[in-house]
Protein backbone atom coordinates (compact mmCIF):
# COMPACT_ATOMS: atom_id res chain seq x y z
CA UNK A 1 0.00 0.00 0.00
CA UNK A 2 1.26 3.43 -0.83
CA UNK A 3 1.11 5.83 2.05
CA UNK A 4 2.17 9.39 1.75
CA UNK A 5 4.88 10.62 4.05
CA UNK A 6 2.62 13.30 5.45
CA UNK A 7 0.02 10.71 6.39
CA UNK A 8 2.58 8.55 8.14
CA UNK A 9 3.88 11.51 10.05
CA UNK A 10 0.35 12.49 11.10
CA UNK A 11 -0.43 8.90 12.04
CA UNK A 12 2.67 8.53 14.18
CA UNK A 13 2.04 11.78 15.96
CA UNK A 14 -1.53 10.81 16.70
CA UNK A 15 -0.51 7.41 17.96
CA UNK A 16 2.13 8.84 20.24
CA UNK A 17 -0.32 11.41 21.52
CA UNK A 18 -2.90 8.73 22.23
CA UNK A 19 -0.32 6.63 24.01
CA UNK A 20 0.69 9.62 26.10
CA UNK A 21 -2.91 10.28 27.11
CA UNK A 22 -3.29 6.63 28.01
CA UNK A 23 -0.14 6.39 30.06
CA UNK A 24 -0.10 9.76 31.82
CA UNK A 25 -2.75 8.87 34.40
CA UNK A 26 -0.61 5.93 35.46
CA UNK A 27 2.43 8.14 35.76
CA UNK A 28 0.50 10.70 37.75
CA UNK A 29 -0.67 7.92 40.06
CA UNK A 30 2.90 6.77 40.57
CA UNK A 31 4.41 10.18 41.16
CA UNK A 32 1.66 11.17 43.55
CA UNK A 33 2.15 7.95 45.48
CA UNK A 34 5.65 9.15 46.36
CA UNK A 35 4.55 12.34 48.09
CA UNK A 36 4.33 12.50 51.88
CA UNK A 37 1.20 10.81 53.12
CA UNK A 38 -1.66 13.19 53.92
CA UNK A 39 -0.49 16.03 51.69
CA UNK A 40 -2.12 17.42 48.56
CA UNK A 41 0.63 17.53 45.97
CA UNK A 42 -0.06 19.76 43.02
CA UNK A 43 -0.38 17.92 39.74
CA UNK A 44 2.53 16.08 38.27
CA UNK A 45 5.46 17.09 40.42
CA UNK A 46 8.39 14.96 41.50
CA UNK A 47 8.55 15.05 45.33
CA UNK A 48 11.56 16.47 47.12
CA UNK A 49 12.15 13.24 48.93
CA UNK A 50 10.25 10.30 47.43
CA UNK A 51 8.36 8.42 50.11
CA UNK A 52 8.86 4.85 49.01
CA UNK A 53 7.58 3.83 52.41
CA UNK A 54 4.07 4.78 51.27
CA UNK A 55 3.97 1.51 49.39
CA UNK A 56 4.90 -0.39 52.52
CA UNK A 57 2.26 1.49 54.52
CA UNK A 58 -0.37 0.91 51.87
CA UNK A 59 0.56 -2.76 51.70
CA UNK A 60 0.03 -3.00 55.43
CA UNK A 61 -3.18 -0.99 55.77
CA UNK A 62 -4.73 -2.57 52.68
CA UNK A 63 -3.76 -6.01 53.96
CA UNK A 64 -2.61 -6.92 50.46
CA UNK A 65 -1.74 -10.51 51.26
CA UNK A 66 -5.28 -11.25 52.38
CA UNK A 67 -6.75 -9.42 49.40
CA UNK A 68 -4.68 -11.36 46.91
CA UNK A 69 -5.62 -14.61 48.57
CA UNK A 70 -9.30 -13.71 48.52
CA UNK A 71 -9.26 -12.79 44.85
CA UNK A 72 -7.35 -15.95 44.11
CA UNK A 73 -9.96 -18.08 45.89
CA UNK A 74 -12.76 -16.41 43.98
CA UNK A 75 -10.97 -16.86 40.66
CA UNK A 76 -10.17 -20.49 41.33
CA UNK A 77 -13.83 -21.20 41.96
CA UNK A 78 -15.38 -19.07 39.24
CA UNK A 79 -13.16 -19.60 36.22
CA UNK A 80 -12.81 -23.42 36.05
CA UNK A 81 -16.45 -24.06 36.89
CA UNK A 82 -17.67 -21.53 34.35
CA UNK A 83 -15.34 -22.90 31.70
CA UNK A 84 -16.42 -26.46 32.38
CA UNK A 85 -20.16 -26.01 32.34
CA UNK A 86 -20.04 -23.55 29.46
CA UNK A 87 -17.98 -26.00 27.42
CA UNK A 88 -20.49 -28.78 28.09
CA UNK A 89 -23.36 -26.54 27.06
CA UNK A 90 -21.49 -25.11 24.09
CA UNK A 91 -20.64 -28.59 22.90
CA UNK A 92 -24.24 -29.70 23.26
CA UNK A 93 -25.70 -26.67 21.52
CA UNK A 94 -23.03 -26.28 18.86
CA UNK A 95 -22.18 -29.86 18.06
CA UNK A 96 -24.94 -32.19 19.20
CA UNK A 97 -27.68 -29.68 18.36
CA UNK A 98 -30.61 -31.27 20.17
CA UNK A 99 -34.15 -30.27 19.30
CA UNK A 100 -34.87 -26.89 20.81
CA UNK A 101 -31.20 -25.86 20.67
CA UNK A 102 -32.11 -22.65 18.92
CA UNK A 103 -34.58 -21.60 21.61
CA UNK A 104 -32.16 -22.42 24.38
CA UNK A 105 -29.49 -20.40 22.60
CA UNK A 106 -31.79 -17.41 22.23
CA UNK A 107 -32.59 -17.62 25.93
CA UNK A 108 -28.90 -17.42 26.73
CA UNK A 109 -28.25 -14.64 24.22
CA UNK A 110 -30.93 -12.54 25.89
CA UNK A 111 -28.68 -12.32 28.91
CA UNK A 112 -25.82 -10.80 26.93
CA UNK A 113 -27.10 -7.25 27.23
CA UNK A 114 -28.17 -7.53 30.84
CA UNK A 115 -26.89 -4.70 33.03
CA UNK A 116 -25.75 -6.12 36.37
CA UNK A 117 -27.76 -3.44 38.14
CA UNK A 118 -30.90 -5.08 36.79
CA UNK A 119 -30.52 -8.12 39.02
CA UNK A 120 -28.42 -6.85 41.88
CA UNK A 121 -31.32 -6.13 44.24
CA UNK A 122 -32.94 -9.59 44.02
CA UNK A 123 -29.49 -11.17 44.16
CA UNK A 124 -28.93 -9.43 47.46
CA UNK A 125 -32.08 -10.93 48.97
CA UNK A 126 -31.36 -14.30 47.39
CA UNK A 127 -27.90 -14.37 48.96
CA UNK A 128 -29.33 -13.22 52.28
CA UNK A 129 -31.88 -16.03 52.26
CA UNK A 130 -29.15 -18.52 51.45
CA UNK A 131 -27.10 -17.12 54.31
CA UNK A 132 -24.23 -16.35 51.95
CA UNK A 133 -23.98 -12.56 52.33
CA UNK A 134 -20.49 -11.41 53.26
CA UNK A 135 -18.96 -14.64 52.06
CA UNK A 136 -17.05 -15.22 48.84
CA UNK A 137 -19.88 -17.49 47.68
CA UNK A 138 -22.05 -14.40 47.27
CA UNK A 139 -19.68 -13.29 44.51
CA UNK A 140 -18.79 -16.71 43.12
CA UNK A 141 -22.23 -18.18 42.52
CA UNK A 142 -23.90 -15.19 40.82
CA UNK A 143 -20.82 -14.57 38.69
CA UNK A 144 -20.96 -18.10 37.29
CA UNK A 145 -24.58 -17.53 36.36
CA UNK A 146 -23.89 -14.09 34.92
CA UNK A 147 -21.05 -15.39 32.75
CA UNK A 148 -23.17 -18.12 31.19
CA UNK A 149 -24.69 -16.09 28.34
CA UNK A 150 -21.30 -15.01 27.06
CA UNK A 151 -19.41 -18.19 27.85
CA UNK A 152 -22.01 -20.55 26.36
CA UNK A 153 -22.35 -18.34 23.30
CA UNK A 154 -18.59 -18.26 22.87
CA UNK A 155 -18.10 -22.02 23.21
CA UNK A 156 -21.06 -22.78 20.99
CA UNK A 157 -19.62 -20.54 18.27
CA UNK A 158 -16.43 -22.53 18.59
CA UNK A 159 -18.09 -25.96 18.34
CA UNK A 160 -20.38 -24.94 15.50
CA UNK A 161 -17.35 -24.28 13.41
CA UNK A 162 -15.57 -27.47 14.24
CA UNK A 163 -15.53 -29.75 11.20
CA UNK A 164 -18.07 -32.56 11.43
CA UNK A 165 -15.69 -35.17 10.05
CA UNK A 166 -13.49 -35.06 13.13
CA UNK A 167 -16.31 -36.65 15.04
CA UNK A 168 -17.03 -39.01 12.19
CA UNK A 169 -13.50 -40.30 12.32
CA UNK A 170 -13.64 -40.77 16.04
CA UNK A 171 -16.97 -42.51 15.79
CA UNK A 172 -15.61 -45.01 13.31
CA UNK A 173 -12.97 -45.80 15.89
CA UNK A 174 -15.82 -46.73 18.21
CA UNK A 175 -15.61 -43.79 20.59
CA UNK A 176 -18.68 -42.79 22.57
CA UNK A 177 -19.88 -39.21 22.48
CA UNK A 178 -18.37 -38.62 25.89
CA UNK A 179 -14.96 -40.00 24.96
CA UNK A 180 -15.09 -38.04 21.74
CA UNK A 181 -15.78 -34.88 23.71
CA UNK A 182 -12.85 -35.36 26.06
CA UNK A 183 -10.31 -36.82 23.68
CA UNK A 184 -11.05 -34.95 20.50
CA UNK A 185 -13.06 -31.83 21.04
CA UNK A 186 -11.65 -30.46 24.27
CA UNK A 187 -8.00 -30.68 23.17
CA UNK A 188 -8.92 -29.00 19.91
CA UNK A 189 -10.73 -26.25 21.82
CA UNK A 190 -7.73 -25.13 23.82
CA UNK A 191 -7.28 -21.80 22.02
CA UNK A 192 -10.94 -20.89 22.47
CA UNK A 193 -10.89 -22.08 26.06
CA UNK A 194 -7.77 -20.17 27.00
CA UNK A 195 -9.08 -16.95 25.51
CA UNK A 196 -12.31 -17.40 27.42
CA UNK A 197 -10.34 -18.18 30.57
CA UNK A 198 -8.42 -14.90 30.21
CA UNK A 199 -11.62 -12.93 29.76
CA UNK A 200 -13.34 -14.54 32.73
CA UNK A 201 -10.26 -14.05 34.86
CA UNK A 202 -10.15 -10.34 34.09
CA UNK A 203 -13.85 -9.75 34.56
CA UNK A 204 -13.82 -11.55 37.88
CA UNK A 205 -10.76 -9.71 39.11
CA UNK A 206 -12.33 -6.39 38.12
CA UNK A 207 -15.86 -7.12 39.33
CA UNK A 208 -17.01 -4.24 41.48
CA UNK A 209 -20.80 -4.01 41.81
CA UNK A 210 -21.34 -7.51 43.21
CA UNK A 211 -18.50 -7.06 45.65
CA UNK A 212 -19.68 -3.70 46.87
CA UNK A 213 -23.27 -4.80 47.37
CA UNK A 214 -22.99 -8.38 48.52
CA UNK A 215 -19.81 -8.45 50.58
CA UNK A 216 -18.96 -5.81 53.14
CA UNK A 217 -15.66 -7.26 54.31
CA UNK A 218 -12.88 -6.25 51.89
CA UNK A 219 -10.98 -9.38 52.83
CA UNK A 220 -13.70 -11.46 51.17
CA UNK A 221 -13.93 -9.39 48.01
CA UNK A 222 -12.47 -9.27 44.54
CA UNK A 223 -9.56 -6.97 43.86
CA UNK A 224 -11.73 -4.21 42.39
CA UNK A 225 -14.09 -4.44 45.34
CA UNK A 226 -11.17 -4.25 47.72
CA UNK A 227 -9.91 -1.19 45.88
CA UNK A 228 -13.33 0.38 46.34
CA UNK A 229 -13.14 -0.31 50.06
CA UNK A 230 -9.62 1.09 50.20
CA UNK A 231 -10.83 4.27 48.56
CA UNK A 232 -13.80 4.41 50.93
CA UNK A 233 -11.45 4.34 53.88
CA UNK A 234 -8.32 6.15 52.71
CA UNK A 235 -9.77 8.22 49.87
CA UNK A 236 -8.92 11.42 51.68
CA UNK A 237 -5.21 10.65 51.87
CA UNK A 238 -4.26 11.10 48.23
CA UNK A 239 -0.67 9.78 48.25
CA UNK A 240 -1.62 6.73 50.28
CA UNK A 241 -4.62 6.13 48.02
CA UNK A 242 -2.40 6.31 44.95
CA UNK A 243 0.13 3.93 46.46
CA UNK A 244 -2.61 1.49 47.43
CA UNK A 245 -4.23 1.69 44.01
CA UNK A 246 -0.93 0.94 42.32
CA UNK A 247 -0.33 -2.06 44.56
CA UNK A 248 -3.79 -3.38 43.84
CA UNK A 249 -3.22 -2.83 40.12
CA UNK A 250 0.22 -4.39 40.10
CA UNK A 251 -0.79 -8.07 39.82
CA UNK A 252 -3.06 -7.42 36.83
CA UNK A 253 -0.46 -5.25 35.15
CA UNK A 254 2.22 -7.88 35.58
CA UNK A 255 0.03 -10.69 34.31
CA UNK A 256 -0.98 -8.51 31.39
CA UNK A 257 2.56 -7.59 30.42
CA UNK A 258 3.61 -11.24 30.52
CA UNK A 259 0.64 -12.53 28.53
CA UNK A 260 -0.08 -9.39 26.55
CA UNK A 261 -0.41 -11.10 23.20
CA UNK A 262 -3.01 -13.52 24.56
CA UNK A 263 -4.83 -10.75 26.39
CA UNK A 264 -5.08 -8.49 23.40
CA UNK A 265 -6.29 -11.21 21.07
CA UNK A 266 -8.74 -12.53 23.67
CA UNK A 267 -10.21 -9.09 24.24
CA UNK A 268 -10.47 -8.30 20.54
CA UNK A 269 -12.06 -11.64 19.74
CA UNK A 270 -14.21 -11.39 22.82
CA UNK A 271 -15.71 -8.16 21.62
CA UNK A 272 -16.36 -9.39 18.13
CA UNK A 273 -17.82 -12.70 19.10
CA UNK A 274 -19.91 -11.38 21.88
Amino acid sequence: MIVSRRETWLGRTMLILLMAVTILPFISLFVTALHPSGTYPSGLEWPESPQWSNFVDAFKVADMGTLLWSSFLIEIAVVPVSLFIATLAGFALGHLRPPGARIILVAFVLGLTLPREGVIVPLYYQMRDLGLLNTRWAIILPLIGLYMPFAVYWMRAHFVNMPEDISEAARIDGASTWQMFWRVHVPLSMPALSSLAILLFLWTWNQFLLAVVLVSDPAQRTMAGALGAFQGQWGTDIPLLCAGSLLILAPTLIVFLVFQRQFVSALLQGSLKG
Binding site: L18, M19, T22, I23, F26, L202, W205, N206, F208, M223, A224, L227, G228, Q231, S245, I248, L249, T252, L253, F256, Q260, F263, V264, L267
Partner: peptide, 11 residues
Amino acid sequence: LFLPQIIPLVA
Protein backbone atom coordinates in the same frame (compact mmCIF):
# COMPACT_ATOMS: atom_id res chain seq x y z
CA LEU B 1 -3.61 1.35 24.48
CA PHE B 2 -4.94 -1.79 26.08
CA LEU B 3 -3.93 -0.84 29.59
CA PRO B 4 -7.22 0.95 30.38
CA GLN B 5 -9.08 -2.18 29.35
CA ILE B 6 -7.47 -4.48 31.85
CA ILE B 7 -7.56 -2.32 34.96
CA PRO B 8 -10.72 -2.15 37.04
CA LEU B 9 -12.97 0.82 36.27
CA VAL B 10 -12.61 1.67 39.94
CA ALA B 11 -8.94 2.33 39.36
